[in-house]
């Protein structure tokens, strides 16, 4: 006789909500959300319209730029960020290979998606991080939200995004941003909180206003951490492009998706590796840039 059989019913079987009740419960919420979508869908779409236009414009710009010019521009950016000839050469070789293997246009689309979503993450994430650093209460509210955003399976929030905005560029972008924004928020907050108390006291002693303190002392000194956050955000945005392609974000991700659906091994590998190549370039460049920022902020001896 098993333990289960010896126990009274309540302890053996989990007291479930009735089948019908549960069905009605789910249906009810779904229906409410659907009504909400029907009523507000257009308003929400209008709200995101400027972002959509920007996204479309930026993608077109990248696609319309002749490839040699594009390589030159990207190599220049790498040089400005990393100041390393090796990095510039590696970037040029990677881009050339990508183009030669027929992935140029998809790479440009992915680049556009990642750039715009990084931009959105920074534009929202840094102010939120600042607010968090300024108040313990704000921090206590936002940290759990960030935890949820980072752990909830991406597919789960694809559903409401899809219901609200349908398939397309903006939903893809939003999905990427939800996934990629936490690091920049967290590290902005952390960076500001880690600023040396003595230096802050000096700023106070000289009569700095809270705004002056933020922009002249806290943010500059938080910059290395803040930059580490941006770096992670970029990496996570890149990691998300395949999932985002499920709801209409075109680019390398949608090629990978196609390869998965059709068991095209080489197509999958090639596009996957292209994503890796972009990731490595972004990562090294932003890390080197972060290090350069840090140069003088390190230890003061004496």
């Amino acid at each position: 006789m098993s333990l289960k059989e010896m126990l009274p019913d309540v302890l053996a079987e989990f007291p479930k909500m009735g089948r019908a009740d549960l069905r009605d419960f789910k249906k009810g919420i779904d229906e409410t959300f659907r009504v909400f979508t029907r009523e507000n869908g257009e308003a929400i779409e209008n709200f995101f319209y400027p972002l959509k236009m920007f996204m479309v414009w930026f993608e077109k710009l990248l696609l319309a730029t002749p490839w040699p010019l594009m390589i030159v521009v990207l190599c220049l950016l790498v040089w400005l960020g990393a100041r390393s000839i090796t990095m510039v050469i590696m970037t040029a070789v990677a881009l050339f290979l990508i183009g030669y293997l027929g992935m140029w246009d998809d790479t440009m689309r992915t680049l556009a998606l990642v750039s715009v979503s990084t931009f959105v993450c920074i534009a929202i994430g840094i102010p939120v991080g600042i607010l968090m650093a300024k108040s313990d209460r704000t921090q206590a509210v936002i940290v759990p939200i960030l935890d949820i955003m980072q752990t909830i399976p991406a597919f789960v929030y694809l559903i409401p995004v899809l219901m609200l905005l349908g398939i397309g560029k903006v939903p893809g972008l939003i999905a990427v941003c939800i996934y990629a924004i936490p690091p920049v928020v967290r590290l902005t907050d952390l960076g500001i909180r880690l600023v040396d108390k003595d230096v802050l006291e000096a700023a106070d002693a000289f009569g700095a206003s809270p705004t002056q303190k933020m922009f002249k002392v806290q943010l500059p000194l938080a910059l290395p951490n803040l930059f580490a956050g941006v770096n992670q955000t970029i990496m996570m945005a890149l990691a998300m492009v395949v999932v985002a392609s499920l709801i209409g974000a075109h680019g390398l991700g949608s090629q990978v998706l196609k390869a998965v659906n059709n068991q095209y091994l080489t197509l999958g590998m090639m596009n996957g590796l292209a994503i890796v190549a972009i990731a490595i370039v972004f990562d090294r460049v932003s890390q080197k840039f972060g290090k350069r920022l840090q140069k003088h902020s390190e230890t003061i001896h004496g």
């Binding site: 040396d196 230096v199 000096a202 000289f206 910059l223 003088h296 390190e298 003061i300």
Partner: peptide
Amino acid sequence: MVFQKFALLPH
């Protein structure tokens, strides 16, 4: 004010 640990702005 002048501080014991200098409290200069490193950046």
